[in-house]
């Protein structure tokens, strides 16, 4: 992985229409973005199509990077995540989803998640760990599967407003923990 400054410089150059910078940006970041999208969509064909669209978005919107205040990899991964979630929601809306079992497989943190080295990751794993298991799972599902309040309410078999209250409380607790 390249440094934050290198990626940032490549995004800035891409914003000026510099194709070789965009090619370098793709070279440095596409494996990560592809990995994230594949983990969300779990289909090679759909992931290829999505990643192509994601890089077109990056190409067209690179000039908006600075306004967001994101770190460069967060900006890129967030674009990728949002696009993948759009696809996943569209897939669910047409009932063309993968089987439930496949969807669920990757949502709980694996051993590698708990043993990870980065301190950021340790911090969030720790704070997720302070939430009741089902609430942590709900937040994770919202982020990694794009599940809506209605879908989460159905999954956890609670009324919609209860789900909303649960999740909002969990987010507040998470924020308080992360800000410590």
């Amino acid at each position: 992985m390249s440094t934050r400054e290198e990626i940032e410089a490549l995004i800035d150059a891409t914003a000026t229409g510099d194709r070789s910078a965009f090619a370098a940006l793709y070279g440095h970041t596409s494996a990560k973005l592809f990995g994230v999208v594949l983990r969300i969509l779990k289909s090679d064909t759909e992931t290829e199509e999505a990643v192509q669209e994601i890089y077109l978005k990056i190409w067209r919107n690179a000039d908006r990077y600075r306004a967001g205040g994101y770190s460069p990899m967060t900006w890129l991964i967030t674009i990728a995540r949002n696009h993948a979630i759009d696809k996943l929601r569209a897939r669910r809306a047409t009932g063309a989803g993968l089987s439930e079992a496949e969807e669920i497989a990757d949502v709980t943190p694996g051993p590698e998640a708990l043993a990870m080295a980065s301190s950021d990751r340790a911090r969030i794993v720790n704070c997720f760990g302070q939430l009741p298991l089902d609430r942590a799972e709900a937040v994770r599902r919202a982020y990694l599967q794009g599940e809506t309040y209605a879908e989460l309410a159905a999954r956890f078999e609670v009324p919609l407003n209860t789900m909303r209250t649960w999740l909002r409380r969990s987010l507040l607790k998470l924020k308080e923990c992360l800000s410590e």
Partner: peptide, 28 residues
Amino acid sequence: AEDFVTLTADFPEETPPETLWRAIEASL
């Protein structure tokens, strides 16, 4: 966004097929 993105930190990188970059470049 920074906080949630760390949920993807342990997702393994996957090199896309070579055809993908050509498709992106062509579409520009």
